[in-house]
Structures are given as C-alpha cells and as structure tokens.
Nucleic acid binder design. Sequence first.
DNA 1: CAAACGATTGAGCATACGTTCACGTAAGGA
DNA 2: TCCTTACGTGAACGTATGCTCAATCGTTTG
Lengths: 115, 115
Amino acid sequence: MKQDSCQVTVIDRKRIELARKQMPGAEVLENVSEVLKLLGDTTRLRILLALATTELCVCDLAALLEMTSSAISHQLRLLRARGIVKYRKEGKIVYYSLDDPQVQSLIKVSMDQIG
Amino acid sequence: MKQDSCQVTVIDRKRIELARKQMPGAEVLENVSEVLKLLGDTTRLRILLALATTELCVCDLAALLEMTSSAISHQLRLLRARGIVKYRKEGKIVYYSLDDPQVQSLIKVSMDQIG
DNA sequence: CAAACGATTGAGCATACGTTCACGTAAGGA
DNA sequence: TCCTTACGTGAACGTATGCTCAATCGTTTG
C-alpha cells in the first residue's frame, strides 16, 4: 500500500481505477476548462451576456461596461480565438456577436443554475 | 454622439439600453463567474470529475491526478469554501464528495456541450 | 490630402493564481 | 511513548492574467 508514481500513498486502488475510467482525455479536459476559464471572468461574461441580447460594436460594449475599448478589444480577441464570438465590419465599425450555440447554451445554464 | 462616463464614444444608445436591461446585477455576475472560474482549471475540474464517480480521500485524489496531496488540498479548500465539495472524516482519512447538485449538473452540461 | 475616428496591438505593470516546500496537527500503530 | 501517516496551512516563487498606455492601421469625412 505504498509509493505510486510520485511519493503518494494509495488507500483504495479500486476507487482510483473507477474514477480513472470515467476521466476524459487530456485534450477534452483542456478544451472544456479553457472555455470555462473564458466564461469565468466578469468582463468577458458581461460581454457575452450583452452580445446574447444584441450585436454590438466595440465602443458600445465599452460604454456599456464602462471600460476602455482597448480593454474590450483585448478580451474580444480571446473570445474570437475560441470561436465564441464573430465579427462583421461595417465601414470602420466592427460589430460583434455570438458564434457558438453550445457556449451560448452553457452560459444560459450557468445563469439559471448558479445566478 | 460623444463622451459617455469614460471618454467612450457611443454609436447606438438603444442597443446599449437593451443590453443593459438584460444584464444581471453585480452580485449574480460575481457569483456565476466565480463558480465558472473554479471549474475552469484542469486540476479542479479533474478533482470534480473524479468525485462525480465516487467519494475519494485526498491521497487517492493525489495518486489519481499524479500530484502532491498538498496541491490537491489547496484546491479542495477553494472548492469547499464555495460549497462545491464536502468532506467526511474517518479516522485520519478525509473523504471528499460533491455537495452542490447545480454545480454538478453544470459540469455535466459542460462536458456534454463542449467536450 | 489631412484630420478624425473606431478598432487593434504590443509593451509594461500590478495583481492573481497554482504549485512547491517546510512545518504543524491529529490519529493510529509499534 | 515514539514513530508513522493523512491532511492542512502559510510563505515563497514563478507564471498567467487583465488592464493601461502609446502607437498603428483602415476607413470615413472635411
């Protein structure tokens, strides 16, 4: 009853094996936690909640959240990188909107369950 | 068409008001993002996924995740503080298990939708 | 063309975060 | 009693994160 791969004592191997079988692969895990981490910031969450209502340009998002458009732009870049939001250019104005239905429903569930 | 509370130009006041109406209060927002942030870390997510299968003691969690029990213990403290997990002492062994059905279902939805 | 504007980007900076390390505590066994 | 074990905690440390600031790009307008 001793010494696993990193000086950790094991109490119940059966339970560990049981839990290990259910555990998703590293890739899935990384994916899920990355999305949840993106949602786990008030600025980004507010951006997404706003965009859930209506498409908005960067400066209106900035006005709504009372932040600089630079700060908003930085966060939008991260959301864009994960395909959570998309944009549409109209002249010099860039309109953002939600682009991932699954993330969208995850947000809704989160608000319903936790908020 | 200029100068809101923080040198930000407004393009469309109507959309902003629309979005503002839907926006939850700061308290709710803080709550939700805090839970999502807790789920948005692979260590904590793996802990919770393991505990979704079966109750586990700290050292078995450490063995399963191949991490030190100290690191696990630190994370469990955070999860305990939010009422996401609970514990049960049996001699010197402490068994942890899930304690929040809503967070539990949120994890399930996350895995189904994203993973 | 030049000026203004919306948006983006990179550097810098302060803070938050996650792990390690060392130590402390409570319980059990020799 | 003394030692081991399971767990918890605080300090330290390296890294990640989010914002600001300044500069830049592309587009529109005077």
